[in-house]
Design a protein around this nucleic acid. Structure first.
Lengths: 197, 197, 197, 197
DNA sequence: TATGAATGAGAATTCATTCAT
DNA sequence: GATGAATGAATTCTCATTCAT
């Protein structure tokens, strides 16, 4: 009894499960409540509204995500190594939680502009990590100083994201983690022929 | 009596405008009908249901998109040049039709898994174009033969898509088209420092 | 070409088939038109509206019904024999046209009060036949003169109708015509024990 | 604060009134809700859908009907007396509730085959009562043992039902209850001339 | 805190009917 | 007479949210 998970976390966990199962729009608040083992009304003691559940779920998960990356990346490494670690971790976390993968790649997108804006706000924490790596890469002369930093970040994030989405749309049939080094290589060196003089 | 636009096209055009304005979920079929200047019921002579309107809009627009690219790309050029043309055209078309940009980057994603699958089906026409360029690039030794073709495509598409989405989320404040050469350079050469021996 | 069925009859026939198949409310005017091989609009050259089709179908069929009975009953017979003939014919006609049976016993009832009134109006032609038989029966001292004529008619029609409805609801699984003599016997002699002194 | 009628009953009562007034197809769920003094959505906490309201109304009313008859008939009486009681009660209940009469004789029939089947299922409770009386009548040698029991039941129910329907179609202008003994006599003795040797 | 019964706004779709050709 | 494309009115049911207990 005493050690019962606080209701907030119960609801977050229930939401991840329920949304991944039924999709955001098909997932009724009452289903989340049932899954969490609380009354419908209780949800509203912890969340402002349904959207707030979704954004909170995402915030919560991304925090764990960033925290775990943060630690890993802090270790002394080159920017390129850090980038590889980031990609690997990104792929690993979603590989290990297929419901979370569905949620981030599919369900989270099925939301209106305002909610997307909030999601992007939360996402900034992650993008900042990428920015740090880029900054380090440039300072350490690993990355090209003449490139547009924002575009670099968009390439890195866009490529990672597209890779995961494709994998989710393909029912997560193949090993995502194995792709990390190749994706990393592509991001660092591009598609161009390196052997060409 | 002028040759009135066929109703089908009228409705497609009205849908782009109305959906971009109000968002897919906020946009009632009756609003589309009004914008198109037809009765509500008429919509259902041309489309199976509301989802069918959305998917048809996308199919129609993507067809124009691919057709226009197709012509441009057919001209004798290197794969790298073709890639640049593809990026430029992608950016230009969405720059010139801001409503279409909102539709493809935001509204089209707010749909359920089944509809997403249909959209991806339509999208394949475009991805095939990218695949062709990649194939040519490898054959012409412009692109590295050892790279995973699917990942290359995902990087190219993911980067372009993310770049456009960011631009749309930023209210289309800056010049997207100008970014094309830089994006192209990034895709070909990656983030890595090229001056490094 | 010349001997093509007049459209009116074509539509009536199509209506019987289509209504029996799909039910009155599920049967769209356009389906009747298709079945009849005419355009939707053509229906409205021959009928005022959808209800008018139904009532016309019923009127047409009942006319044939009454006509055929009329001839049969005119032959010199006792009232009791005529009643048996009426029952037999009623059962036979509906046995031979299962679609018509569904129409009269189920579909025709699924209509609003006003339409029911019109149907009853048409039905009067049939009820008059019963009344004639009752009148003859009383005059010929076959039927009890002290009984309420209207109630007799309601018993006769109610019993026949309920018998047919039960048979239709039972998917027309048994031989309806065979029941005619027993129904006739019941109507003439009632349920009471006749051997009782 | 009085013990407010449970919502279920409130809605049932409201449905009888509203359907009798406007007819089943003209009667919107929102009208029933209004009449019942509840919100539209509340209806769906107690009923699956609109059809379910109708079938529930009928089930509820028939239960009262059968219960009241059951008590009356249990008293020691001959089968013939019981039949008379059944007819009288049937007529009385519908006489006393003219809205219920309209509902059972007109509105309840305006429904599709599936719903009719459900209604018949409910009706079986009543038909079983008739069957019991018939059985007793035969055992007690009041009714003729050679007659088909199902046909007897159909005659009894068909005659009662037709009598009530005619009365309803005639705007309930005359005294239905008074007809009970005559209907009873007809059912027991038939139309035939009893004085005939 | 927690409950869960009650609320009520909101929208896609059908199909009988019309009328310009 | 015949067509059939176009019309547009009309209604059930869902589900996020509230609030009395």
């Amino acid at each position: 009894m005493k050690t019962e998970k606080p209701k907030y976390k119960q609801i977050i966990d229930a939401a991840v499960i329920t949304i991944a199962e039924k999709g955001y729009h098909q997932c009724q608040v009452s289903k989340i409540a049932k899954q969490a083992g609380v009354a419908d009304g209780t949800i509203y003691l912890y969340f402002k509204n349904k959207e707030d559940i979704l954004i909170s779920v995402f915030r919560e998960k991304l925090r764990q995500f960033v925290d775990s990356l943060d630690g890993v990346i802090k270790e002394k490494k080159t920017a390129s190594e850090k980038l590889l670690l980031l990609i690997e971790n990104h792929f690993r976390i979603l590989s290990e939680d297929s419901q979370l993968a569905v949620l981030t790649q599919l369900e989270l997108r099925q939301t209106n502009k305002e909610l997307r804006r909030q999601i992007n706000e939360v996402l900034k924490g992650y993008l900042l990590l990428i920015d740090q790596i880029i900054e380090e890469g440039i300072k350490g002369e690993e990355f090209d100083r003449n490139l547009d930093r924002r575009l670099m970040r968009q390439m890195i994030f866009g490529t990672i994201d597209e890779t995961v989405t494709t994998w989710v749309m393909n029912e997560q049939k193949y090993d995502l983690i194995k792709l990390a080094p190749k994706v990393h290589d592509l991001l660092i060196n591009g598609c161009g022929n390196r052997s060409k003089t």
